[in-house]
Simulated scan of single mutants.
Amino acid sequence: MRLLRHNHVFFYVIRGKTVKKMVLIDFLLGTGVYYGIKLISSSLIIASIGSIACCAVTTRKMNGPKIRVTSFS
C-alpha cells in the first residue's frame, strides 16, 4: 500500500492594526495590573502571576483577528 503525501501551503493574513491594538492593550493592561497588585500585596511573584493571568484572559476574551486561510494543493 502506497502512502500519498500532500504538501499544503497555508497563508495567514493578520492586519497590522489588529496586532498593534493587541500589543498596546497587553502592555498597558499588564503594566497596570502588575503595579496595582504589587501595591496591594507587595509581592513580586503574585504581581507577576496576576499580570500574566490578566493578559491571558483579556486576549482570549477579545475578538480574535479575522484570519483568512488559503490553501493550495
Rank of each mutant, 00 (worst) to 15 (best):
H8S: 10
S51A: 14
G50R: 02
T58W: 00
T59G: 02
G30W: 04
T59K: 04
K38V: 04
F27R: 14
N7L: 12
A47P: 10
V9Q: 14
H8Y: 07
T58R: 00
L44K: 10
L44G: 15
T59F: 02
L28G: 13
T31H: 09
L29V: 09
S42M: 06
V57W: 02
T31S: 15
G32D: 09
L39I: 08
L29F: 03
L44E: 09
G32I: 10
K38L: 05
K38H: 15
L24E: 04
V13Q: 03
V19T: 05
R5P: 04
I40M: 11
S48G: 09
I49D: 09
K61Y: 12
I25C: 04
H6R: 03
T31E: 08
Y12E: 00
F10E: 15
T58G: 00
I45Q: 06
T18A: 09
L29T: 03
I49N: 14
T58K: 00
N7F: 07
L24H: 14
M22K: 04
I37V: 15
S48M: 05
H6M: 04
S43W: 06
R60I: 05
D26Q: 06
K20E: 14
I46M: 12
Y12G: 00
L39A: 14
Y34Q: 04
T18I: 07
R5Y: 07
I45T: 09
G32E: 04
V19D: 13
S51R: 08
M22E: 02
K20S: 13
V33C: 07
T31R: 13
G30T: 05
I40W: 15
G16I: 09
C55Y: 00
T59Q: 01
M22V: 12
S51F: 06
A47W: 06
D26E: 07
S51K: 09
L44V: 15
I14Q: 00
G36V: 04
S41M: 11
I45C: 05
F11M: 11
C54D: 01
A56S: 05
K20C: 14
K21T: 14
A56C: 08
R60F: 13
